[in-house]
């Protein structure tokens, strides 16, 4: 008689194979569907295009997001601000009609936040804008996007990378960004 582990390995190939294939399938499936777990490109209540506003028409970011310079939040413009222009511009289009519906009902537009940080993160737009960081550094080329998509991971390592590269004072201290 003779002995070798290979035949036994061969015989259990099926079990090992099923396990390995299952594992790979799970990983690939998770990777493919990862957007399902966190949507980087949500469908907004109004098909607002940053490409038209910020790109073609060259409206500066801080015309609408006017608190970015002076506050922690950049600020979503009020319906009033939209109406200001759209009273005369592009009236009658379907998407603009939706805007007027919100205006008439006196309701805010339920925008879906694309760049959303968890509750435990302290992020100040003011500090970054005053520090000379371009909006596009974090938000990507928004002026080329019809529907805004989140390109940055917004994860801790991503923040740290920049903080290290720019040698931010106390930029790696936990309580600089956590609260």
């Amino acid at each position: 008689m003779s002995i070798s582990v290979l035949p036994a390995l061969d015989a259990s190939k099926k079990a090992v194979g099923i396990f390995v294939v299952g594992l790979i399938a799970f990983v690939i499936g998770y990777w493919v569907n990862r957007n399902y777990f966190s949507d980087a490109t949500p469908v907004q209540p109004i098909e607002f295009s940053h490409r038209i506003h910020a790109g073609e028409n060259q409206i500066p970011c801080m015309y609408c997001h006017l608190y970015a310079r002076s506050s922690r939040v950049a600020g979503v413009p009020s319906v009033h601000k939209c109406i200001n222009c759209h009273k005369v511009i592009a009236t009658g289009r379907a998407e603009i009609n939706k805007l007027f519906n919100y205006w008439n009902e006196k309701k805010p537009i339920p925008w879906i936040k694309v760049h959303d940080l968890p509750d435990f993160v302290y992020f100040s737009h003011k500090r970054h804008v005053r520090g000379g960081v371009q909006c596009q550094t974090c938000h990507g080329p928004v002026e080329e996007m019809n529907r805004v998509t989140r390109l940055a991971s917004l994860q801790m390592g991503w923040c740290l990378e920049c903080h290290r590269a720019k040698k931010v004072e106390n930029g790696r201290d936990c309580w600089t960004c956590h609260k």
Partner: peptide, 11 residues
């Protein structure tokens, strides 16, 4: 070990 090639033995 492990024996990857056949080796003689007897139970």
């Amino acid at each position: 070990l492990p024996a990857l090639r056949e080796r003689h033995y007897t139970p």
